[in-house]
Structure formats: C-alpha cells, structure tokens
Simulated scan of single mutants.
Amino acid sequence: MSRFAWALFNALQLLFTLLWTAAWIALALLVRLLTGGRHWPLRMASRCWAPGLLRGAGARLEVHGLERVDWSRPHVIVANHQSMIDVCALFRAVPVPLRFVLKQELAKVPFVGWYARAMGMVFIERASARSSARRLRAAVEVVRGGASVCAFPEGTRSRGRVGPFKGGAFQLAIEAGVAVVPVAIEGSGRVLPAAGFRVRPGRIVVRIGEPLSSQGLVPHERSALAGQAREAVVALLAEGAAQ
C-alpha cells in the first residue's frame, strides 16, 4: 500500500479504536451499575471489546499453554510488554476475568480511568511509599478474594529484548500466597509498535508457561521470583522462535 493509503488506514483505525472503546466502556459501566457486580462487565472486555479491536487491526491471535494452569484459582499473571494491544491479547487469551496493574496516571484519563476504577483494577504510585504500601494491601485483598491480576513487570513497553522485571507484582503474589503465571507475547509490537499509532495486520502469539509457586517465600525474595519469571518468559519466546 502507498504511504497515503496507510496513513488513511491508520487514521480510520484510530477513530474506530476510540469510538469502539468509549462505547464498550459506557455499556460496561451501565452493566456494572445495574448488576452491582464486575464479572459481566469484565467478560464484555474479553468477549466483545478485545476481539473487536484485534479483528479491526487485522491481528490473528494464537494462544498456547492454557492447559498448564488451573484457572479456578487466582493467580498473578506477568507478561512481557511490546504494545498497547497486549491488553487486548491478554483479555482475549486468558479464560477468566482479569484485573490489570496500571499506573496511577491512568486513573485520571476519561473513560479509561472511570472503567478501571469501577472494575477494581490495581493502581500503583511509585512516587509515594506510603501510598504504594496501602495500594499493595488493597491488591492483596483483591487477589485473596479470588481475582486474577495481570501485570507488565518491565514497567514500560520493550523494544526487542525483554527488560528486567520489577518486583512489585511478585511481592503481591508472595503476600497473597498465589502462583505467578509467566506469559510471553510475540508479534504484538509488529501489529502496533510502541511508538505512535501505526497498525499493520499480523499474528500475535500468547504462550502461557507453567505457574511458579510463591509458597514459602517472603517479600524480600521477590527479586529472585522476578528473575525466575523473566527467565520463563524469555524461554517461552525462544520456544516460539524455534518453531
């Protein structure tokens, strides 16, 4: 396609993304208000919102390794992060409602922040140790209540090599007493790169690894668990590259 055609395609993609997201958020908030629960609004994200954006981007999603996890139990899911479309891929790939760990700044974004707060997403605030401790305690209660939480422990979108994993999500797993599920996402950065809004049709592969136990660990061992999880994600990516 010519440069002009791609520019027009991406402009339409952006418009579709904004309108589609706003519509489903509005509907999810209405369902949350009417039912008083979060299950169905979160299911709407995985069964309606995320598939619509993936199809609109021309992304073909493949999921491997679902059978490795007992999804009746809560987990802390950690994944590498190449693109904003990773959220759609994980919502669609994981067969249980997900709550994501998000930066505090997103709470102030119209629609997205309203939805995240209403759905019980976990916010982190790195600048305040007191606030971070309070939010960690709240996140532990969310997981102990049966919810699975998903985090991108690199802290930012990577370009190529998987970055170091920060320890917050792993401390959450240790204190909640749940296993960590490593997940490798491949191809999302080619569909929607980290910089700008340049959509290109392609394949996104989600590989789910064996859960890593946090039993018997104490919070100061979170770095070791983070390193173990990163190694598992890197191995899953290498597995995909070898096929």
Rank of each mutant, 00 (worst) to 15 (best):
K108P: 07
L33D: 02
R126E: 06
A173I: 05
A11Y: 05
S128H: 10
V191P: 11
S213W: 05
V142G: 09
Q228D: 12
W24A: 08
V206N: 08
D70W: 08
E239L: 11
A138T: 06
S46C: 10
M119F: 15
A129F: 00
L27Y: 07
A241F: 07
L106S: 12
V96K: 13
V101H: 01
A57N: 08
R222Y: 02
G177F: 05
I124F: 13
A107Y: 01
S158G: 03
Y115S: 10
G168F: 08
E105F: 06
A194S: 10
G145D: 04
P74F: 08
L30D: 01
M44W: 00
Q82H: 13
E221Y: 05
R130N: 07
L236Y: 00
A107H: 03
H39T: 15
A179Y: 02
F100Y: 12
F165S: 00
M1E: 03
M84P: 06
R207F: 03
V87I: 15
V69G: 09
L172Y: 00
R47F: 00
G36Y: 12
A45M: 13
G58A: 09
M1P: 11
E62K: 13
R55F: 12
R135D: 08
A139K: 09
G168S: 09
A26E: 10
L98I: 04
E210P: 05
H39V: 14
A11D: 08
A133H: 05
F170C: 11
F123V: 05
A93I: 01
F152E: 02
R92K: 13
Q228K: 15
F197Y: 15
R99S: 12
Q228R: 15
A147S: 14
R198Q: 14
G216N: 06
R47E: 03
L136F: 10
L18K: 04
L53H: 11
R32I: 00
A139T: 07
A50Q: 09
G187H: 00
L15W: 14
G167T: 12
E67L: 04
G187R: 00
N80A: 03
V234D: 14
A176P: 14
Q13A: 13
L102V: 06
E67P: 04
Q171P: 06
T17L: 15
V101R: 00
S158W: 06
A7D: 05
R3K: 14
A138V: 04
V206E: 09
V69Q: 13
L30M: 10
V149L: 10
V76Y: 06
E175L: 14
M44D: 08
P211L: 09
V206R: 07
G168I: 01
H220V: 04
L12Y: 02
A79F: 01
V76P: 14
V143Q: 07
P193D: 03
L14G: 10
L106W: 15
T35K: 13
V87L: 15
